[in-house]
Design a protein around this nucleic acid. Structure first.
Lengths: 361, 361
DNA sequence: CAACTCACCGCAATCGATTGCTGAGTGGGA
DNA sequence: TCCCACTCAGCAATCGATTGCGGTGAGTTG
């Protein structure tokens, strides 16, 4: 079938017809032709790992030809053959949540220099959508997954993990399996928050917990109970309300419930910043002065908190670093599949601002 | 995807060896074999556009075989052959800017149902990086580009556009070429802001303009001058300062310069919300009460502005809709290459909050 | 009954890069 | 002088899906 290539000879030049209006990008064969070698040789010369197999002079010629043509290997063709893609999937609930962009950037900043790219998908916390997205990622030959949507019970993730899919969880973990993860040290963070509040003189502290289907939600809630106990206070279950989502509206709803129950409290530790901001909405609704009557501590350290009214005291989480660390771990796992998988906890710190003060009276 | 794969016709099995630990995904040939037809026929049966070419019964058999195997076409192989990828490139400066996530979601929400996906890249406003990213997008066979990094002078974009690359600009436009774009009606927005301020009684209004290398920056600045004139005020060039970037720090720097110049003014129209928030930083530094001594209007309507101190009055831009509209336009252009390219302006609205008030005295 | 049409399906090439295998050529050692 | 080892480069298959072309069989018509 070499007949199909009238442009094979040295005269050639005809080659592939340049499409109107768009420049035909050179292929490996073009490079090979210009260098006067076979495509296979060109391929080996271009690939550093294979280069030792070709004569140094030949390699030079190929490299030069590639440079003059501005040759860029076609990643699609390469992926097809090698079943690799230099791409990792990044599964997050919703990019619109200010939590995620810094993580994404951290991931990309590590992936990029390593020659990898991230393919971002949103699941909106919808398991069906998540499944579809994961399927599509898999069919795109992603070499690994970074997942921010883990729930404690997450069979789909177990299955993938068992099938050998490389993955790293960020922000959250799963219950059963030993899937590597990168999370903040939530327990320590909550302890910091409670300690701060107790130090200010608060005795009746509420917790607006996040969804108990997520590790983050339960870990923080448990840490809250422990921290309360550690300070010699008695834990009052009625001061713990669970939010269905990590959102402002859920936070507002939870606080309203708490207020309406008329159990006294002077401070709240919110499951995250968004829940804390939901409290702000309720404060506005009901004319409750913060921090004068109720102090609030958030969690995460999202942007612009310093400009809120009042500036929100929060437990700061190094999201960018979560991203970089996760990406590094995933790359390690890809490079060396046998490697023992580990999970890391990143330190948090308390950022005291103006939403916390001594309790009134 | 069922784990057990009795699949693979009678003798078969030989074919591709199932990799350890991971289930071998079925290929078109597997489907064809199970259906007892040739791969070509299976391909046609699976593709709605080609289905009329095959017998209805055969098509049914193929569909059923595909279903039982859980067949998913390999998009890589398909892309290689068809030179299409069902993905579009999305070029933004920095995902971390709260402006972009809503746009991204808008884009994805339109692209998804159409079977397309978005490939997101950040350029950090670095032309070299941008060039590299665009190159990588092109090599991935993206079928079109949505670009949020346009500068007024942008030869790279001209070139791509001339080569027939389908693209839609969002948020910003370019000077020379007629590249379709989706932007907010910046001029009207600025007019709204100025009108509001003048209505409150302000006479000396400053403008902290965004970078004049971007259409957004110059359009808003020009609109500001016009709006001032339209209200019978005289435009004072010393009350216009240009920020180098669309950031808080740039905004703070600009305001400091303005303050230090000691030209009196009672209100500022900021180029965007971030610049406005930069003003807040300076207010804090210098104990300037806002809005009592200086009123501020932002631009964009980013999230959480209602919880700032003070809540920021701003010109709200429908970012999500910018995304959906841009995606629709791009899909149209892909479907019908001959179509006349248009540019759309989306309406803005003023959201009055507490950062603006009557001038003191 | 023969020739012709048409629907349907299979063959094989193709997209572009990678890689196992083979063969040509060279140099060295016995 | 002969043979072997070794380097290097080309051949062709392959990844999986798509598609132009050609062939087969059934049905139709003169």
């Amino acid at each position: 079938m070499s007949a199909a290539q009238p442009a094979d000879g040295p005269m050639a030049g005809g080659g592939a017809g340049a499409r109107i209006g768009s420049v035909q990008t050179p292929t490996l064969r073009d490079v090979a032709q210009l260098a006067g070698v076979h495509a296979a040789t060109a391929s080996r010369a271009l690939n550093p790992r294979m280069r030792p197999m070709v004569n140094a002079d030949t390699a030079r010629k190929v490299l030069r030809a590639a440079a003059t043509l501005g040759y860029q290997p076609n990643p699609i063709a390469r992926s097809l053959k090698t079943a690799k893609s230099a791409t990792v999937g990044l599964v997050i609930p919703d990019l619109t949540n200010p939590l995620f962009p810094p993580i994404v950037r951290g991931i990309e900043d590590v992936l990029g220099p390593a020659g990898y790219n991230a393919w971002i998908v949103n699941t909106d916390n919808d398991p069906d959508r998540e499944k579809a997205q994961l399927e599509s990622l898999r069919s795109r030959q992603v070499e690994g997954l970074i997942i921010a949507t883990a729930r404690l019970e997450h069979p789909l993730l177990y299955r993938l993990h068992e099938q050998g899919t490389k993955m790293v969880l960020v922000n959250r973990r799963v219950d059963a399996a030993e899937i590597p993860s990168v999370t903040a040290d939530d327990a320590a963070g909550v302890a910091l928050a409670v300690h701060h509040l107790v130090g200010l003189g608060h005795r009746r502290i509420a917790h607006l917990a996040g969804p108990q289907t997520t590790s983050t939600g339960v870990v923080r809630a448990r840490a809250f109970r422990h921290a309360i106990a550690d300070h010699g206070l008695t834990y009052d279950p009625s001061l713990m309300v669970t939010c269905d989502y990590w959102t402002e509206t859920a936070g507002a709803r939870a606080l309203r419930g708490l207020l309406d129950a008329r159990r006294p409290f002077t401070a709240v530790v919110a499951g995250n910043d968004l829940i804390a901001l939901g409290c702000y909405d309720v404060f506005a609704e009901r004319d409750i002065p913060c921090p004068d009557r109720i102090s609030v501590v958030g969690f995460n350290g999202m942007p612009f908190l310093d400009k809120m009214r009042p500036p929100l005291t929060t437990v700061s989480v190094p999201h960018y670093e979560i991203g970089t660390e996760a990406a590094r771990m995933l790359l390690d796992a890809i490079d060396d599949p046998g490697r023992h998988s580990r999970s890391v906890l990143l330190a948090t710190s308390l950022v005291v601002r103006r939403s916390t003060a001594r309790p009134a009276g």
